[in-house]
């Protein structure tokens, strides 16, 4: 298993910064560019994100989320806060509405890089309707506003809002089930002597 760079950073190992930037620098930079209108602002956002990452590294718990997911979560939160403060709307011209191929197989390498949760998310996204997939992609991945998505997809504003929000809830529920299934499979594989814990809601 790959050693957690965040754990190393939390313990004061400054040499882990290099590894962290190797591993997640591109991810954060790409995220920022998608969300922020210009390169200068994107660079500022990346600096903010990494400052928060250094500060929050100690809160990373591999039992709760994968490292890439944790980094993406911090990055998204900062980008959302930043946009809210600046009250800026995304530039739709840069947004592609290519059909989402939720079944596209990016292989084992991607799962290693992005984590199991990303693979689950992709699988679960494929279970939503094509329109919901598009709305979620534009909303979550590109940070597009409801109005922009409504214009692009010729959908009523209210529909876009509910598709995005309910779509994310559906995705979460689906991922819970996937995780439970993985846990159950693990218990079965561990043999009859394993202690079977009662299953329940994760929230």
């Amino acid at each position: 298993m790959t050693e957690s760079v965040l754990t190393r950073i939390a313990s004061g190992d400054r040499t882990a910064v290099d590894d962290c930037l190797d591993r997640y620098g591109g991810l954060v930079w790409s995220l920022a560019k998608r969300w922020v209108g210009n390169v200068d602002d994107a660079e500022d956002a990346v600096q903010d994100i990494f400052v928060e990452l250094w500060q929050q590294a100690g809160r990373f718990d591999p039992a709760v989320a994968g490292e890439a997911t944790f980094v993406a979560m911090i990055a998204r939160r900062r980008l959302i806060d930043r946009r809210r403060k600046q009250s800026r709307t995304p530039v739709m011209e840069t947004i592609s509405v290519e059909p989402v191929d939720a079944n596209a197989d990016h292989g084992t390498e991607e799962i290693l890089v992005r984590g199991e949760e990303a693979a689950q998310a992709k699988e679960c996204l494929g279970k939503l309707s094509p329109t919901q997939q598009q709305v979620l992609t534009l909303s979550v991945h590109h940070g597009a506003s409801h109005a922009s998505i409504a214009g692009k997809l010729s959908l009523p504003l209210g529909t876009v809002k509910s598709y995005a929000r309910r779509g994310l809830i559906q995705l979460r529920d689906c991922m819970r089930l996937s995780a439970d299934a993985v846990d159950a499979a693990g218990l079965v594989a561990s043999g009859p002597s394993a202690n079977v814990a009662p299953t329940g809601s994760r929230s």
């Binding site: 944790f70 998204r76 989402v100 984590g115 990303a118 693979a119 992709k122 996204l125 992609t137």
Partner: peptide, 9 residues
């Protein structure tokens, strides 16, 4: 969930 989806996409 949103972060995982973002990573997936």
């Amino acid at each position: 969930t949103a972060a995982a989806l973002d990573l997936a996409l």
